[in-house]
Design a binder for these strands. Structure first.
Lengths: 333, 333
DNA sequence: CTGAAAGCGCTTACAG
DNA sequence: CTGAAAGCGCTTACAG
């Protein structure tokens, strides 16, 4: 049916090897034969069979992406789709493909990893989260499978990763609060296990310290989850202790809950900032200022890093830091 | 490095053909050799090379998914990611893989389709939208490439598709309004080009007719876009004509805008229902009732339909209708 | 600059 | 029930 390299060779009156070389743009091919071959390719509307090429090359140019089965809540956040589009844009540039996999069962991720790697389907993996003592990372490291992690993992050794500078992003939020004259600034964070949580908390503390403001542990609450209820509870707890003039949070959902607590429990006006700039933030009352983490760029860079490794490019770094951007809205004005 | 079928054959003292047959679970293999081969497979931790298999089989078991480059707005909606997870869940069941592709440029979709199909990378495609005179559908049909469309396309001939019953879903919304005693019910819809828009409008009209309520064209506004501004404008236009007691909309974003127009332009309480049950709907004031379209199930069924076709299963239908579910909140109480 | 040959790791019709 | 052989459609070291 479809033309193969042999058909092209026949028409162009050369050997398949030569056709292959023309396609690979090998330098040692005469202009004349090159033209003849290209002519034949067009005539037959020939397209190389990627699978055959992959087999011969022992490389598929396919990247494997695991969509983690985190809480459904995360799907409210366009983070995943944005990261995925960013990855796709870069992958295309380099002639790579992306295969994704999702499962409802928490423990199937490792199974996929094994399946994809054992069967030699993909050249490398992209992980969208990293837990502490991540089984997937462990497996990939042990088997020397190339991979990149979105979000800095616990152990950075021998891993490629992309992330925001969470310390700096939170530092800047708190610094802004201080510039505006705030001194009583509370902090509401998510689960402590995440590096991201730690970094943001450090950023908060540092900004206070630098400006000579006492870090009051009672003004810091770290919740076990990124949701509204936690945000509400954290804010209530803080309000019982003292009424801050500003609150920095590590997630929009926490901020939404805090916002509700504020409106219900006090008449004071309290400035508040979120994180992740979810679409919901615009709809809050007041509209919520938030840190945009540039998820698409994270995906783009992740693909770049991984493909760079696969192509043995000389990259001097094992990670990229993607810039964040503070989106100011009513809640901090 | 990694074991191949030959290695297994050697250890089990059989031919590669036999190993292949054991893996394929061919019936005409004696129990003894089967056991020996399975033993050898375990011993070597052998896993078939999918690429080699694909080449021999002339089938990759890979499904190609095009993420359409619609307006950024659509990413606020978890629709895509939900459809994608649903697809993945079914594909896994059947040992299929899913490859996705996204591009910023509108016209690259067809390019991808061609690239993927010409290079024999994928066995079939899943399209996440269909425009009128869709170039992609046209191409796939012409080349007899198997594909399925999420959302009923204009021309149903020779295409597999999955969708909700948009007529019925909207009929039920309006019927509910009428049951609650409403008689002046307005309609705000999206772009007329979409089948979905037409079906929902028809459902609205039918419900009125069935209950003997006059269909007043001045109470129907069809906008050119699915966003808040359009919703706001549509609602203003309707309010200038007459103040309805209820409004049915074909999209949550339209409803959000309408909600704002209502709160700004009138003191009357007007019931309103959205569509798609976006995460934002909970956060409206009042929280917005909305129709959940069950996107994950749409994806699941799409994969089912396509894989059924690829496996030449006898399926009596060329489409699946996925149930919707009305989620009632304050806005219609 | 070009070709014949071997190889990538499977599957399967054919033969026994 | 099992094996030898050919084939899937490429690439590339080797030779000239």
């Amino acid at each position: 049916m479809t033309a193969t390299i042999k058909d092209v060779a026949k028409i162009a009156k050369v050997s398949p090897s030569t056709v292959s070389r023309v396609i690979a743009d090998s330098p040692r091919i005469s202009k004349e034969t090159k033209l003849r071959v290209e002519q034949a390719i067009k005539e037959l509307n020939y397209h190389p069979n990627i699978i055959a090429r992959s087999l011969a090359n022992k490389s598929t140019k396919i990247l494997g992406l695991i969509i983690p089965n985190t809480s459904e809540d995360l799907f409210k956040n366009p983070f995943f789709i944005q990261v995925m589009t960013g990855m796709s844009i870069y992958a295309q540039k380099r002639g790579y493909y992306i295969m994704y996999s999702y499962s409802k069962q928490e423990d199937e991720e490792l199974k996929f990893l094994k399946n994809y790697s054992n069967s030699k389907l993909v050249d490398g993996f992209i992980l969208l989260t990293s837990k502490k003592d991540d089984k997937c990372i462990e497996f990939l490291k042990k088997n020397k499978y190339p991979f990149v992690v979105v979000g800095r993992p616990e152990d950075i050794n021998n891993v490629l990763w992309v992330d925001n500078d969470n310390f700096k992003a939170m530092y800047n939020v708190v610094d802004m609060f201080i510039q505006k004259g705030h001194k009583d600034i509370a902090f509401i964070g998510g689960p402590k296990e995440f590096n991201m949580s730690k970094d943001r908390l450090e950023g908060y503390k540092k900004a206070l310290e630098v400006h000579g403001i006492f870090v009051d542990d009672n003004m810091i609450v770290q919740e076990t989850n990124f949701n509204e209820v936690c945000g509400y509870n954290a804010m209530s707890q803080i309000l019982k202790y003292k009424i801050p003039t500003a609150v920095a949070t590590t997630d929009d959902l926490l901020a939404f809950g805090a916002l509700r607590a504020i409106s219900e429990l006090t008449d004071k006006k309290i400035a508040i900032a979120g994180f992740n700039n979810t679409p919901l933030s615009v709809y809050q009352n007041p509209p919520l200022s938030s840190v945009d983490i540039n998820a698409e760029e994270l995906g783009y860079c992740a693909a770049k890093l991984l493909i760079g490794k696969l192509e043995n490019e000389l990259i001097s770094t094992n990670h990229y830091i993607v810039e964040t951007k503070f989106i100011e809205r009513e809640s901090t004005k």
